[in-house]
Nucleic acid binder design. Structure first.
Length: 424
RNA sequence: AGAGAGGUGGCCGAGUGGUCGAAGGCGCAUGCUUGGAAAGCAUGUAUACGAAGUAAUCCUUUGUAUCAAGGGUUCGAAUCCCUUCCUCUCUGCCA
């Protein structure tokens, strides 16, 4: 959520930023916020004045009653009763203004960082780096959905039977590979100073709102209706909300957490023939890194997190590219996002396997997470990134390392899997 | 899930209709003391939103709100009533 005070100060900065995302009426909306904030201040001042009068009257009535002057007290009571109506009216006006501001603010996305390129869709993204694909043109390479079937690693049909489409069943070495990757990713993060957390995978409404999934992505989350809980779409939600309503001392920074969780996404509307196999799922595993940092160091932290993700992909020896998302492709709450994609030669496609973002104060303003430095208090910056999401990494590993009758396991993973190749 | 007891500042804890944003203690901060420390003493110590002063989102003065959350009764609510949430104890169930 953007901050009204900052909007008032830098309206052009904000409106130009939102314009970059394609919100043509942003200036109008921002001006509307300021207008209603002016009203809010006015009514707040009025109400406070009324309340002051009211409180003083009540005190006097108490004194009269105690000194036995009942008649005078009765007269004053009647006066106060009249004030009560005015109090209610003004307080309603105030609440109304606050509600309008809140409504606009919660539906306004974050402002893109100045280095974010403008553009409407993925075609306008900046490819920062792209490694060689290392593909032998003479060899016949299969997409992973063929491989998982012929090597009996994942059974999609069984998943359909017991749950539905997008809920795969991992089998034998397929299942072991999942565990290996999770442990490998967590160990690597711990090496970099992240503290491991195992959070609940259901969260309440307040948490879903805090990180910006509500109201923007309501339709994308599975909801446990009668409990009013949401299945998490990413560990970002429970982890970041751990610090909701807290004032953190600057000396504790950066806070670095890593969590493995399953993730659940409805992916409504994005289902089709172009998403096969592991490319898009309703349930998948992900190791997520989250950092809370102050405003001065957050961009450095973003680079550090990107480096970590890049390092993981390199250790797995997968061809990859790093992409700076353009404003139009940016998530609702993010100010800047780098995507990492690995190459899957069997389907000749780049697959997104990580998204590393700086949300700056957008989430913390909703969640009320502050940092105290001496006497100063500021909203914290939050950052997170996948490190990494499993399914597309599995797809890339299988497709890149396939030989005629086996699939090689990357060296670094072998201590985790306990086997060095997958055979039929 | 049933029955009972509760939810007060960073923590503990007093407070059952007015003088309570809240005693007291602990903790923390600053100063005095000391060769240094401890002890002792003194002072300070919530958050949010307004108003005035100000270059300032610092600061000073001041107002308002907040005693789990929301609503109600009353001139006046931490205190009484209602709803919701949460915690603890016992019983039940269970990995």
């Amino acid at each position: 959520m953007l901050e009204t005070k900052s909007i008032r100060k830098n309206i052009d900065l904000y409106s130009n930023g939102l314009l970059k995302r394609g919100l043509s009426d942003s200036k109008e909306k921002l001006n509307k916020i300021i207008h209603h904030d002016d009203n809010r201040k006015l009514y707040k001042a009025q109400l406070d004045k009324i309340l002051t009068e009211y409180n003083q009257a009540s005190k006097k009535i108490g004194e009269k009653i105690q000194s036995g002057k009942m008649e005078e007290a009765e007269i004053m009571k009647k006066k106060s009763q009249k004030l009560k109506i005015l109090r209610k009216k003004t307080s309603e006006k105030l609440k109304n203004e606050e509600a309008i501001i809140y409504e606009i603010l919660t539906n306004l996305p974050n402002v893109p960082d100045e280095i974010v390129p403008s553009g409407n869709n993925e075609d306008d993204n900046d490819i920062i780096f792209e490694s060689k694909k290392n593909v032998n043109a003479n060899k016949k390479l299969y997409p992973h959905w063929n491989l998982v079937k012929s090597f009996n690693l994942i059974n999609f049909e069984k998943g359909n039977k017991i749950t539905g489409a997008g809920f795969p069943v991992y089998i034998d070495k397929g299942a072991k590979l999942q565990r290996a990757l999770i442990n490998f990713f967590i160990d690597q993060a711990i090496k970099k100073g992240y503290q491991e957390i195992q959070p609940p995978i259901l969260v309440n409404e307040t948490s879903a709102f805090g990180t910006g999934q509500l109201p923007d992505k309501e339709g994308q989350m599975y909801k446990v209706e009668n409990e009013n809980l949401y299945m998490i779409p990413t560990a970002e939600v429970p982890i970041t909300n751990l610090y909701r309503n807290e004032i953190l001392n600057n000396s504790l920074l950066p806070i670095k957490n890593v969590a493995y969780t399953p993730c659940f996404r409805k992916e409504a509307g994005s289902w089709g023939s172009h998403v096969r196999g592991l490319n898009r799922l309703h349930q998948f595993d992900k190791v997520e890194i989250v950092q809370i940092q102050n405003k001065d160091n957050s961009s450095k932290t973003l680079d550090e997190m990107c480096d970590h993700v890049e390092h993981l992909i390199k250790l797995l020896k997968l061809p990859y590219r790093k992409i700076l998302l353009c404003a139009g492709d940016l998530g609702f709450s993010a100010s800047i996002t780098y995507d990492f994609e690995v190459y899957a030669p069997g389907q000749k496609k780049w697959l997104e396997c990580s998204s590393v973002s700086n949300f700056k104060t957008y989430q913390t303003n909703r969640m009320n997470i502050k940092i105290r430095t001496n006497k100063e208090k500021n909203l914290a910056h939050t950052l997170n990134g996948s490190a990494l999401a499993l399914p597309r990494i599995v797809a890339a590993i299988l497709e890149n390392n396939q030989e005629n009758n086996e699939i090689k396991i990357p060296d670094i993973l072998q201590p985790y899997t306990g086997f060095n190749k997958i055979t039929r």
